[in-house]
Simulated scan of single mutants.
Amino acid sequence: MTTDVTAPARTIRAGFVGGGFMAAVHSRAARAVGAALAGGASSSPSRSRDAAERLGLARGFDSLDDLLADADADLDVVHVCTPNATHADIVRAALEAGKHVICEKPLATDAATAAELADLAAERGLVAAVPFVYRFHPMAREARALVASGETGRLVSVQGAYLQDWLATPNDDDWRVDRALGGPSRAFADIGSHLVDLLEFTAGERVTRLNAVTRTVYGARATNTDIATEDLVAVVVELSGGAVGTLLVSQVAPGHKNGLVVELGGTAASVRFEQERPERLWVGRTSDSRLLERDAARLSPDAARLSIVPAGHPMGYQDAFNAFVADAYAAIAGERPDGLPTFADGVRAVRVTEAVLRSAASGEWTEVAA
């Protein structure tokens, strides 16, 4: 049994577009995997130089075109960490330049464009990944393994939530609130997409139809007015195997920092994963309930692979992100790591988001495109 995440056989040369929080997360992960941080580009030459200094990149480039074309940078992969509405153009340019791509979600703000990008990556034979990183918590993989092994029995119910409070007051504001930058959906596209991805990944089934309600709690904030994107979403879902359930997504839930929770209820057992308590998994049966602690010696092979420190030494979000980047880079090197979220998963997330918006607008059940 190995407890190492997949690692590339050679040094990957990585470039970064954007210089904010997510660029910092991506660059830390790339550095942890042993990549060469060859350069970056941001919204202006001065911002590019500032980002390069802060993130420890070899050089800040004046533009995306300069970054992609520079022979000294010689990029293998481009990490796209910019506002949502800019993703598609940057991804397309990187793919057309022959670069592998890791793009923050949403891959695009509409499903048709996302599908075009996925097709382009496939045509060029390029690795294209979207960081649905909660898949990379070892105990999320253990939940998946328990369901796949049949230990839970047939799934009959699901419940999930993703609750945050960073936009809980009208004085809280962010570029994501602006539809022109963030796209037509905010709360669901931003965090609801993670919830559905984790649900479908652990369940091994897809949401086939849904009924959604959205709410914009604050129509005006500190700098944004006439806000059209949603603060919270409630969704009833039906899965391909017949299970039904409920999902709640909110960015205005006081006291909740990153409350991502998925519970899968089967005929024999229930399994619950909580991202804020990622070192354990709750397993419930009619006879008893127990907390399964992360211990590589007692986990399924895939969960043990991602469990890179001894039991009792907590792992967290950056560890999961590092493991995602390690697997993405391994795919670039020719490996086929299990569970890597690709552009196909990015397309799926946008299609689910569009179904949520259609259902909320009509008040009716809506089918989710495959």
Rank of each mutant, 00 (worst) to 15 (best):
S157H: 14
S157P: 06
Q159V: 09
Q159F: 01
Q159R: 15
G160C: 02
A161M: 13
A161L: 05
Y162P: 04
Y162C: 13
L163M: 12
Q164W: 09
W166F: 14
L167Q: 13
T169P: 02
P170Y: 08
N171K: 14
N171H: 13
D172L: 09
D172V: 10
D172G: 10
D172R: 05
D172N: 12
D173K: 01
D173F: 01
D173M: 01
D174F: 12
D174S: 15
D174K: 05
D174L: 06
D174Y: 05
W175F: 13
W175K: 05
W175I: 10
W175H: 11
R176S: 14
V177M: 03
V177I: 15
D178R: 04
D178W: 00
D178I: 03
R179Q: 13
R179E: 14
A180G: 11
L181Q: 13
G182R: 03
G182N: 07
G182S: 04
G183E: 01
G183A: 06
P184H: 13
P184F: 06
A187L: 03
A187C: 11
A187E: 02
A187I: 03
F188Q: 02
A189I: 09
A189F: 05
A189G: 14
A189K: 02
A189Q: 09
D190Q: 15
I191M: 14
I191Q: 11
I191V: 15
G192Q: 05
H194L: 10
H194E: 14
L195D: 01
L195I: 07
L195S: 02
V196L: 04
D197S: 09
D197G: 11
L198I: 12
L198K: 08
L198S: 11
E200Y: 03
F201Q: 08
T202E: 08
T202P: 00
A203T: 14
G204T: 10
G204Y: 02
G204K: 04
E205I: 11
R206E: 13
R206N: 09
V207Y: 01
T208S: 03
T208H: 00
T208V: 12
T208N: 05
